[in-house]
Amino acid sequence: MDRNQISKWLKNPGKMAHKYSFHVVYFCTGCGIIEIPPSITTRWDAERFGIIPVATPRQANLFLITGYVSTKTLKAIIRTYEQMPEPKYTVAFGSCPINGGMYYDSYNTITSLDKYIPVDGYIAGCMPRPEAVFIGVTHLWKLIDMDKADGYKRYREDYVHYRANQEQLYGQMDWPPLFPVEKKEQANL
């Protein structure tokens, strides 16, 4: 641990703690899940960096979206994301959440995930290898250092728009808005 690190710890312990303690909530939204078990077990051992899976979104601060997102899954993703306490980070896995990937013409998978929830980082590839997960995480560290991993802030600020997009896709949602939505402010696109 160099001196730079120590001064960072002293300056903003909360942020540093977030970096070195990613409690991951994930679920198999797609193929990417197959590389999660190797990366958290013996071969790659993500726990070295404090990355461990947790059971419920309440205890997590990192959301791994592992692959293509079908419309049915997207609902669960939004629900889970909204239940995570702030600050929270999202990393999407593989090409499919970026633009649909090879399922660009599938009637049941959405094409770009960041229309519905904010995504802090993408790991491109099909599939990304476990090493790519770590590179993604180290990249997220840099973003956190630079205060650019601000997806949750964007979600709070632009909640109206996110909610509008979600409702455009689903019609009425099953749960009330997370943040108060004023009717007149609602987007008119």
């Binding site: 309440r58 609902k75 669960a76 629900r79 239940q83 099953d174 749960w175």
Partner: peptide, 12 residues
């Protein structure tokens, strides 16, 4: 939060 904002494995 409300009682309906609760963990249910991603469902309502």
């Amino acid at each position: 939060t409300d009682q309906y904002d609760n963990y249910a494995a991603g469902a309502a």
